[in-house]
Amino acid sequence: MHNLDRALKEYRNNELIADFKSQCSEPVMITSLEVYERSASCYFTRNIFKKICNEIQRVGALNIKVLSITLDKVEFSVTALEDPAKDRRVKLDRSKNLFSCSCKLFESRGICCSHVFCATKFENILEFPDSLIYKRWTKNAKNEFISTEIPVNDDVERVLKFRVGALASNCNKLCDIACKDLADFDEVQSELVKLVIRLQSRKQGKSTPNVDVEGINDPFVVKSKGAPSKRSSWRKKRACSNCHKYGHYYKRCPDLMQHSVQGNPCDRSETNASAKDSGFSPERFANSSRSF
């Protein structure tokens, strides 16, 4: 079941990509019959358009001649340039603009064959005939069928997907119609804005967020959570190494200054001098050796 679900998701994703390419991109014209190519690109999807282009390319290797004309009905004989024995019969009803070919490609696959394109070229028909457009292969094939039956007793996710698909189908058809005229575009745009405002007013008491139609304001500034700043007003004070009190250090200690005034401790210069006198000297060593 998981593999089946994965395969369905991949299939639907490929279908969405193909629909996007068909709706939002224009193919490159590669044949000399650009009139038929451009008409086919407007109606058919990208995959069907490639197959139709292959049929249009084969028109250059075909020969055509008129067999019979009866009122508005004409019958043609289309043969290949390399194989004249292979004969195809194409019938045309000029009053109804209907084509039929003996190869039966349109009846079997829904694609117009090269023999019919050769007949339309011979008749100097510049527009793609509506009788040769198979609705199944057109870009708007999904818009033709819009189901209004909502599934009952089913999961919420499937119901939501069904609603989104139905609304998207209607919106695509509406956009395709309204974008071709400026007046229709303005009317649809204003109606959509009014509809959005009316639906938002109904949801005011619910938990759904209310989106401002006029614009989105700046968000509120919130103090970020993180490490505190390294700059701090508290600073460790230095203590005296003699009395272990704060506010002064060893050289400015009041206890030492008081003892120095009384004369108890000796000065550092005097202690250094006495240390020098008690130290080793060569003269003192020489005098001691002579006396010995």
Score class of each variant (00 low, 15 high):
residue 106 F to E: 00
residue 106 F to V: 04
residue 106 F to R: 09
residue 106 F to W: 00
residue 107 E to K: 15
residue 107 E to G: 02
residue 107 E to L: 13
residue 108 S to Y: 09
residue 109 R to P: 01
residue 109 R to L: 10
residue 109 R to V: 11
residue 109 R to S: 07
residue 109 R to E: 06
residue 109 R to C: 08
residue 110 G to P: 01
residue 110 G to C: 00
residue 110 G to N: 00
residue 110 G to M: 02
residue 110 G to L: 00
residue 111 I to A: 08
residue 111 I to P: 00
residue 111 I to S: 06
residue 111 I to E: 10
residue 111 I to H: 07
residue 111 I to V: 14
residue 112 C to K: 15
residue 112 C to D: 03
residue 112 C to M: 14
residue 112 C to Q: 09
residue 112 C to E: 07
residue 112 C to L: 11
residue 112 C to S: 08
residue 113 C to Q: 06
residue 113 C to R: 06
residue 113 C to Y: 03
residue 113 C to H: 03
residue 114 S to C: 12
residue 114 S to D: 14
residue 114 S to I: 04
residue 114 S to G: 05
residue 114 S to L: 08
residue 115 H to L: 06
residue 115 H to A: 15
residue 115 H to R: 05
residue 115 H to I: 08
residue 115 H to D: 05
residue 115 H to T: 05
residue 116 V to K: 13
residue 117 F to K: 08
residue 117 F to W: 06
residue 117 F to D: 04
residue 117 F to M: 02
residue 117 F to C: 06
residue 118 C to G: 07
residue 118 C to R: 14
residue 118 C to P: 00
residue 118 C to K: 15
residue 119 A to Y: 00
residue 119 A to S: 07
residue 119 A to H: 00
residue 119 A to T: 09
residue 119 A to V: 03
residue 119 A to P: 01
residue 119 A to L: 01
residue 119 A to G: 04
residue 120 T to F: 04
residue 120 T to L: 15
residue 120 T to Y: 12
residue 120 T to E: 11
residue 120 T to H: 09
residue 121 K to H: 15
residue 121 K to E: 12
residue 122 F to P: 01
residue 122 F to H: 15
residue 122 F to I: 01
residue 122 F to W: 14
residue 122 F to T: 10
residue 123 E to C: 06
residue 123 E to M: 13
residue 123 E to I: 01
residue 124 N to L: 06
residue 124 N to Q: 08
residue 124 N to R: 13
residue 124 N to M: 11
residue 125 I to S: 06
residue 125 I to V: 10
residue 126 L to K: 09
residue 127 E to D: 10
residue 127 E to K: 14
residue 128 F to T: 00
residue 128 F to L: 07
residue 128 F to E: 01
residue 128 F to M: 02
residue 129 P to D: 02
residue 129 P to E: 03
residue 129 P to H: 09
residue 130 D to A: 09
residue 130 D to S: 14
residue 130 D to V: 06
residue 131 S to C: 12
residue 131 S to K: 06
residue 131 S to P: 00
residue 131 S to T: 07
residue 131 S to V: 05
residue 131 S to Q: 03
residue 132 L to G: 04
residue 132 L to R: 13
residue 132 L to F: 01
residue 132 L to A: 03
residue 133 I to G: 02
residue 133 I to W: 00
residue 133 I to F: 01
residue 134 Y to F: 14
residue 134 Y to D: 15
residue 134 Y to G: 13
residue 135 K to P: 01
residue 135 K to N: 07
residue 135 K to S: 13
residue 135 K to A: 11
residue 136 R to Q: 12
residue 136 R to S: 03
residue 136 R to I: 11
residue 136 R to V: 14
residue 137 W to R: 09
residue 137 W to I: 11
residue 137 W to M: 12
residue 137 W to N: 12
residue 137 W to D: 15
residue 137 W to F: 13
residue 138 T to Q: 10
residue 138 T to K: 11
residue 138 T to P: 04
residue 138 T to F: 02
residue 138 T to M: 05
residue 138 T to A: 09
residue 138 T to C: 07
residue 139 K to R: 13
residue 139 K to I: 08
residue 139 K to C: 01
residue 140 N to C: 10
residue 140 N to A: 10
residue 140 N to H: 14
residue 141 A to W: 11
residue 141 A to Y: 14
residue 141 A to E: 12
residue 141 A to V: 11
residue 141 A to Q: 08
residue 141 A to D: 08
